[in-house]
Amino acid sequence: MSSLALSAAEEGGFQPPTISETHLPEIFPWMEPWGEGFGKNMLMVILAVVLIAFLFMWAIRKQALVPSRAQFLAESGYGFARNTLGRDILGEKHFKPWVPLLFTVFFFVLFNNIFGAIPFLQMPTFSHAGPAYAMAAIIWITWVVLGFRLHSVKFVRLMTVPSGVPKWILPLLVPIEFISNFLIRPMTHSLRLMAVMLAGHIIVMLAGSGAEFLITQQEGIANTGLGIVVLLGSIPLYFLELLMMVLQAFIFALLTAIYIQSSIEADAH
């Protein structure tokens, strides 16, 4: 906590929420000697897997020719992953084996993001760096392994030596391309998701705590009225965060498809 927040708290003033407040105590601190315990973050990751499996299996349980609303929504979600993320990016020839991965990535990130908009849960899993790093690492390993399987060691040259570039500039360009593709790419893939989720979560927390302080802690009609205005203003912020949750799931899955496509067609340029 900053010295400004401490002095405000001591004087009975407004104490803004901090990043540390988004890290709740562990439910089971059984991993403490080696790291963090089993906390709400891990619980929601498991919950997302269970919910995705249950909802889609329940929606397609009858598999009727004329689909029910639930079956229609499930098929629309699958169609989005298959066509928009798969076929449109990877091409008709290559997309089918990658549809399960793209479907899983999109809905797993989406559900974990949406948790931040659900009362009582109210924390997007990927507002913490750990899950975002883990997801990006899985995609990065998939991209690298696929590249080496299709192109062997030539994959490194394909990713670091752009075609048509004069040879005299290669000593400068190759290290930049190597760092960009093999080191910075997974970092930006994860941090983009984490930063947006954390920022949206902090903004909503700040608006809510500020409104509560003005309404309950301050005297006077003006402060109460201002608190109500802040509370009403947090409603569009809530829906903006909801929009960003969906958009970030799409961007993360879209970049996954683009990375896979770059491995498949690395020698096409």
Rank of each mutant, 00 (worst) to 15 (best):
S3E: 12
Q71W: 12
Q71A: 11
K40D: 08
S163C: 08
A74S: 12
L90T: 03
T256P: 13
V204W: 10
I89R: 02
I264Q: 06
L237H: 01
F182K: 00
I235C: 04
E177R: 08
G233Y: 08
A129I: 14
L254A: 12
G227Q: 09
S163H: 13
T216S: 15
M135I: 13
F115S: 04
L158W: 07
A74I: 08
P171C: 04
L214T: 02
R82P: 01
V196R: 00
E36G: 15
S127E: 07
P162H: 05
L6T: 01
F111Y: 09
G12S: 05
L73F: 14
I27T: 11
I215D: 05
H128I: 00
G220V: 07
V145N: 02
V145A: 13
L146E: 05
T160L: 02
K154V: 04
N113D: 14
S76F: 15
K62M: 05
I264P: 09
I114R: 02
W30Y: 07
S127W: 03
P17K: 00
I19H: 07
R192N: 10
I118M: 03
A74Y: 12
Q261L: 07
P166K: 01
A117F: 10
A195P: 01
E212S: 15
Q217D: 13
I60P: 05
M194Q: 15
G12P: 01
I46Q: 04
I264M: 04
G12N: 00
L55Q: 02
A8W: 03
L121V: 13
E75I: 10
E26T: 07
K96W: 11
G208H: 09
M57H: 12
M135R: 01
A48H: 04
M187S: 08
G147S: 03
A8F: 02
L65G: 10
P171T: 01
L24W: 11
F95A: 04
W34D: 07
M57W: 14
S190D: 06
I118V: 14
A137V: 11
H151V: 06
W168K: 07
G79V: 08
F182C: 00
L193F: 11
L232H: 01
V156Y: 11
P25C: 04
N41L: 12
L254V: 03
L146D: 06
G208E: 14
E265H: 13
A48T: 05
F250Y: 14
R82Q: 13
V109Y: 06
V204K: 06
A266Y: 03
L4D: 09
K40W: 15
G91L: 11
Y238P: 02
A74D: 09
R82G: 06
V246G: 08
K62N: 15
A199Y: 10
L110K: 02
M44L: 15
P16Q: 02
L65R: 09
F252T: 13
F72W: 15
E21R: 00
A134I: 13
L51V: 13
Y78G: 03
S2H: 05
A207H: 07
A195E: 13
F155H: 04
A199C: 07
Q15T: 12
G147K: 01
G225M: 12
I19W: 07
